[in-house]
Design a protein around this nucleic acid. Structure first.
Lengths: 226, 226, 226, 226
DNA sequence: GATGAATGAGGCTTCATTCAT
DNA sequence: CATGAATGAAGCCTCATTCAT
């Protein structure tokens, strides 16, 4: 249609060479589709098409579908995790503030973005792709858990948290977060927003702190809900 | 054909009875595999093999894969829903008791069985199979929601519940239940049982009642938590 | 074209069900194409087409391309080998006669048929398909070598052959046979039959016997050539 | 262009000289890989990588894969053939000596080098690449055969060889040579060196001469074997 | 009814070749 | 000249569905 009005000097090349941008574009397209359709149902043809390249181009940057997925995780999830670890390792103030920062950051940078779809995807399909599950477990779950546990230990060491089992508590903390993230994607078929995520989250953080802080401390907290 | 001489009490030998049991066996096999692998990843060959029949036989009873899935839902989920509706429509006592019965029954007959895998599956794959989503939405979600809402309305009508918006409250009630069910399947890759489901559930029911019961009523409730 | 003149009662089915014949037909087609084009260059589509079935049908009978090739070997080469072993184990007469029977049988049932193409193929491509090489080495080469060596040992044990190293001699015997077989296929591009195979073979057998028989024996032999 | 200031003795730095050496390096890499993997299984990426250039560079020097192969043949095989023709055309002494020189030269410069792999490759794959076969037939086989035949005719013309059919005899001479060359590559899967090539070759040359020389001549020969 | 052989569209992946830089 | 990113046809393999027996 609009090709007729092109200026005569235009010679649109069959393709453009964009070595540096391509991986990002491919990863962005892949993220969108993985989040939208899941791992198995995402066709590499579609990823390529969405990134505006041909099927073969994908294989210049990624060995195969699983590798592409891992790269999506590495590109999107791990930096967030790294930042969180960084914050946890260098934070100066009260552990309650650190905890709150971490949880809110998790929500802001993952939960509240399409990245939460990755979590949903792993929940749904990890059973069918053991290697992916293994990778995700190693690179995301164990690392994330360890970071949370370290925060709890820090709080105890500094006398800010009461004595709790760091690993059990980590599990207890993570589960509702994951559920919250999943609800964003999964309840689509219910056509209803069951909860206001941020309210739920703040409420949950306070609930956690209510349970973790030492009784005596003049600790930084918002009024416990409920 | 060979049903001519049957009397209701007659003990038919197993291999003749097979014909009637076939659908059940197929549905059982399908349920197992759907729950285990998801909808897309379940191969009909495997369903047939697990049921001890040939692939073609599946198509004598079900038009296609989606139809098989619908039948699984109809066979397993809808009766539970029907019983619940029945109970809700005929229950005699206090609405708090009815609510508790309904919620515990949901857990006992669905959440705590492999049927919860269906819920997980729909969460994960409904986006890829619109017709399935449509069916499930119509037959399960709307119906379930309506039933819950009716209970709430009953409670209000009988002066047992305070005035609440039945539909919004229904959403709020359902979300944690679904999350609880999903945690059973999805957290496998976290290698941890995040919550003791029944405790969580009872806690949650009480929490709901705490919020719904009229202040004055000498209502049947366990001590509110929190 | 000629479909118009078909009798009205004819309803050509889209396909025929030929469980028993299919494997043989597929193996025959595969043999032809493997011999003609080699392993890598043979397309399963073509194998299927030649056998008159669709691509997918191949996979009802063979796991994959390599498995198909192995089956071709098993179906065609191993029985010949088995018969030869049988003959070698039960033969009654002079070892020179046994030797001659084995060598001529080899030629008649393999060398002089398209089966010799398998040998050529393995020579050409074993380096690119290690698993195939491993299989062929195990199932054909080692077994064949062992059989020849056993014949030599039999001859020595019965005082019919002079003392020779059975394994080295086996190698020396096999090499020219293989070359003879290859010449059938490979010299196509020379457009010339370099040797009359059967003459060459008889000559070679006699040469072997000339070297193996004890000097004294009134042994069965044709006049040594050369 | 930049050759302007070059003097023949000038020691050009390597990277400037590269341009002229490129084709050689490419041909060397291609030869190695063709010999190692065959024609079809050789990837141009690998050829380029081994030569230390990019894939695209290949296409600056060769139009396509077949052209590259032809160049390999031209670069490596044809000069040897040319030298042999030269020798044959200018040789002064007894035709038996010429014959022996030619055959031993063939072995030394082709048979005993990786170039023999080209022969193997053509045997194995000529059927799949008709144009290559055509080329090789024209440029190598016919030319080589003609040269051999000319030597035979020379021997007859000079009264040194008895009367033989030069073309049939050429075929008979070539076949074992080719087999000998192939055995070097192909018997790898037999894990055994079936023959000592040089012994075999000398033996074979003598055998040929034994059959070709005139009875009376005080001809140069080593004692006929057998 | 029951079977399972047969189909064929569709997905992942490879690689010779092209071409923008 | 040189590069190597991009292409796209082609091959292997899977599996829901059909249908001859």
């Amino acid at each position: 249609m609009n090709t007729s009005s092109d200026t005569p000097t235009e010679n649109k090349p069959r393709w453009e060479r964009r070595k540096d941008e391509r991986p990002q574009e491919l990863l962005a397209a892949a993220l969108d589709l993985f989040v939208d359709k899941g791992f198995a149902a995402t066709r590499l043809t579609d990823v390529a098409a969405r990134a505006g390249v041909s099927k073969g181009t994908l294989y210049l940057y990624f060995t195969n579908k699983e590798d592409l997925f891992k790269a999506v995780v590495r590109e999107n999830l791990l930096p967030v995790l790294g930042d969180a670890e960084n914050l946890a390792d260098t934070f100066d103030g009260h552990s309650a503030d650190l905890f709150r920062d971490i949880m809110l950051g998790w929500w802001r940078r993952i939960g509240d973005t399409k990245l939460s779809g990755i979590t949903k995807l792993m929940m749904a399909e990890s059973g069918n792709f053991p290697e992916l599950a293994q990778f995700y477990h190693q690179e995301v779950i164990l690392r994330g858990n360890a970071m949370i546990a370290r925060i709890l230990e820090r709080g105890m060491a500094r006398g800010e948290f009461r004595h709790i089992d760091p690993h059990l508590t980590t599990q207890a903390i993570i589960a509702p977060m994951i559920m919250l993230m999943m609800s964003k994607h999964a309840f689509c078929i219910c056509q209803a927003r069951p909860v206001a995520p941020l309210d739920y989250l703040n409420n949950f953080i306070d609930l956690c702190l209510y349970g973790m802080l030492r009784d005596d401390a003049g600790a930084p907290r918002t009024p416990a809900p409920c």
